[in-house]
Design a protein around this nucleic acid. Structure first.
Lengths: 177, 177
DNA sequence: AGAAAATATGAGTCGCGACTCATCTTGTCA
DNA sequence: TGACAAGATGAGTCGCGACTCATATTTTCT
């Protein structure tokens, strides 16, 4: 757990690589080569592997970032205290999933802790919705997560139009009411 | 479109390969190697490529078979004339998707015609459900397809338990009512 | 400035998996 | 039964992408 201070250029490169990786994987999917990431980052292939010894670790790092961002977004929504916030968040995640193919892999991510945080915020959002009678009390988080990941995958694979997405999500939300 | 008669052994091998491919891909996912399929079929690698010049064509063949089977199942349900048949079918497909990882790729399949048939039966099932007031009249097939593929993907990726699957699908069905 | 440590570089290794083809085997049919 | 075409075989080719490492470059610290 000791954080060793990185050299200035190393820190800069790490960030560049993460940004490049996110962009490349969003465009071409997870099958994109590591070399492509290196090129986009303006860095040699060896540098990528110095920072992330494995392609999987690079993935995990991206996922962690993404999860943190989503969790932040959810927390902001919790602050608003709107009973429909769960639906707002749900829609936002699915929309992002369609754009950045990374979201879809939420489940397979390695680090468990960020997921904990994510699930916890979702739980809060769900509780708020239920307190405001926007969602039936017998709906459990596990079902919300299942529906969320299903919708993400579906949106990604099926290339849902905005319209189709809204109509499909409307059905899901109605089921939760 | 001319059907040339295959030699007896060729016909037998073709079937074996298809069965093997379905089993192997169900177990290990689409990344499984063609050699593994050949081995399981008890056939040399060259034979697989004689029948299916490309891995993609092998996939397409499996998908076509699968779609036909699903369509048959749906047609049998149409005959029953049960307004809840759509839900029965929906559940069946999702369950199969979890088992045979092949179902999940329904969309990307190449041959368009089998999909036509599938969508058409789904449409019938939906119409029946709506006639029996089991499903709201403003639900369209495109949404049903979207929900179906989403659920399949979700079940596969999320490794849903039977229980979770039922509870999740219950929410979706409620949304369609 | 100057040396040591950290970091970057990129040509090269390695393994894997899709696909080929020269050769052998088997089914078919007169 | 014989012969020929259809089919089967499997060692080999090819390309690709993850990962390595000897060497060159920076940063940092005194």
């Amino acid at each position: 757990m000791t954080e060793k201070p990185l050299r200035a250029d190393a820190r800069r490169n790490r960030t560049r690589i993460l940004e490049a990786a996110e962009a490349v994987f969003a465009e071409k999917g997870p099958a994109a080569s590591t070399e492509e990431v290196a090129e986009r980052a303006g860095v040699a292939i060896g540098t990528v592997f110095r920072h992330f010894p494995t392609k999987d670790e690079l993935f995990a790092a991206i996922m962690k970032d993404l999860l943190r961002r989503l969790t932040d977004e959810a927390e902001r929504l919790v602050a608003d205290d709107d009973p429909a916030a769960l639906f707002t968040f749900f829609t936002s995640v699915v929309t992002q999933a369609a754009a950045t193919r990374t979201v879809a892999g939420l489940l397979q991510v390695s680090p468990a802790e960020p997921i904990q945080g994510f699930t916890h915020v979702l739980e809060t959002l769900l509780a708020r919705a239920q307190a405001g009678r926007t969602v039936r009390p017998d709906v459990h988080v596990s079902e919300v997560v299942a529906l969320l990941t299903a919708a993400c995958q579906g949106a990604l694979l099926g290339a849902w139009s905005d319209d189709l997405r809204d109509r499909t999500l409307a059905i899901i939300f109605k089921g939760m009411r």
